[in-house]
Amino acid sequence: MQGAGSRSGRVRLARPCENSSVGIQTQLRRAISVFRFVALGYPVLLGALAFETLVRPVEAALLVVVLAAWTGAVSHRYRHRGYEPKALYADLAVTAAAIAASSWALATDGVPISVGPWLAGSVLAWAAAWGRRSGAIAGAVVAAFGMVFRGGVHESTVNEAALLVLTGFVCGHLVRLGVKAEQRMREAAERNAAARERERLARDIHDSVLQVLALVQRRGTEIGGEAAELGRLAGRQEEALRALIRSESYRHPLDGQRDLRELVGRHEGADVTVAAPATPVLLPAETARQFAAAVASAVDNVREHCPASTRVWLLLEDDAEAVTVSVRDDGPGIAPGRLAEAAAEGRLGVAQSIEGRIRELGGTAAVTSAPGEGTEVEMRVPRLTAEAGGAGGDARRGR
């Protein structure tokens, strides 16, 4: 049956047991139901015109009643439960049985009358549920029964076979295109809504938080002493917030990827030097976000625990095998065993915010430090793991 994965570039059609697709497929179910009832007019009209020559007129009338009842029952089931596998298989089986019954009941002087367009109903249902390949297969099955019960291979049955197979294939292809277009429209609407929300948040931040931070920085500088240090920290946070607001990488990309280089570049400032490749370092959006959060935690640790004069160097490297970010500072360093002590005390900044995030992405984080020699945090995520994590990371985190 036809499905799709993100890597193959094919759109994922709804499985028959799913009821989540409420757009184009809901409309198709209704259209196919209308078509099937209208198509019943074909055997009714032919039977009425040739009623006097029918070999079994009573059985022919009963057959039409049964077809109408089945059409109503299966259309109702599709409408309320979606395309369930057992209903689809039953529909195809009833269609095959209708071909056999019509060759016996709808016959004039030994020549069977086809139930015509009604046969395409189950083929269209298969195509709408499972795609073009399944639609073509269903059409071939119905056509094969037609050849068996209506005199073998001749012009009439060959034409009918071609129409049924093409109908299933084309309908399935159009459904595929329609679902893909519907997904793109939904994603575009979500991006627009997210962009509007970001603009609203940016206005709120500018009108409240940024102004307060600017005031704290200015007043702290005027007062001096410990207040000046508080003002300096407020100024850093103000710069970081402004960079976040104006960063283009904060926008949701069309292809679901983020540029880690731009996310890391937000930290560049008077005391932070960033070195990165000249070309974008693209990762799945969630992977890039988690990686950038670990880097931000490492930079924040320097600002929280080191003197104001401490400088930070941030190096981003990208090769065919892995993406590596190193955060190095010239601060006082970390005493041996201090990180283990902090973790035992419940202070999990490095253990969770840095090592935990990188480990969850399938990578490694190493902290190298010595008293008086500064600290270096190296975070490395393999390329294949990072790309796979973009598709499955949310599921691993239980989202």
Results as ranks from 00 to 15, higher is better:
298 A>F: 02
262 E>T: 07
286 E>K: 12
309 S>C: 02
271 D>G: 05
368 T>W: 00
291 F>R: 03
352 Q>P: 00
375 T>M: 12
333 G>R: 02
336 P>E: 03
338 R>N: 03
282 L>V: 13
359 R>L: 13
365 A>D: 00
378 E>N: 08
378 E>D: 04
277 P>I: 09
375 T>G: 05
285 A>Y: 07
354 I>M: 07
347 R>C: 02
297 S>Q: 07
294 A>H: 01
352 Q>G: 05
359 R>H: 13
299 V>G: 08
275 A>E: 15
381 V>C: 10
385 T>F: 01
306 C>I: 00
349 G>L: 13
262 E>R: 12
295 V>M: 11
268 E>V: 08
361 L>Q: 06
369 S>H: 09
301 N>L: 10
329 D>P: 08
328 R>F: 02
342 A>G: 00
270 A>P: 05
302 V>M: 01
265 G>P: 10
280 P>I: 08
287 T>W: 02
278 A>V: 06
353 S>C: 11
327 V>L: 12
281 V>M: 06
268 E>T: 04
307 P>S: 08
333 G>V: 03
272 V>K: 03
306 C>L: 02
385 T>K: 09
260 L>P: 02
359 R>V: 11
346 G>D: 06
375 T>R: 08
334 I>L: 15
255 D>Y: 13
304 E>L: 15
306 C>N: 14
348 L>G: 03
346 G>T: 08
366 A>T: 15
320 A>R: 11
341 E>Q: 14
317 E>D: 09
371 P>R: 11
259 D>V: 07
311 R>K: 12
334 I>P: 01
311 R>H: 14
302 V>P: 00
367 V>L: 15
261 R>W: 00
313 W>A: 13
369 S>I: 08
335 A>E: 15
358 I>T: 05
268 E>Q: 14
371 P>V: 13
258 R>T: 07
257 Q>W: 01
265 G>E: 10
303 R>I: 02
255 D>K: 14
312 V>I: 15
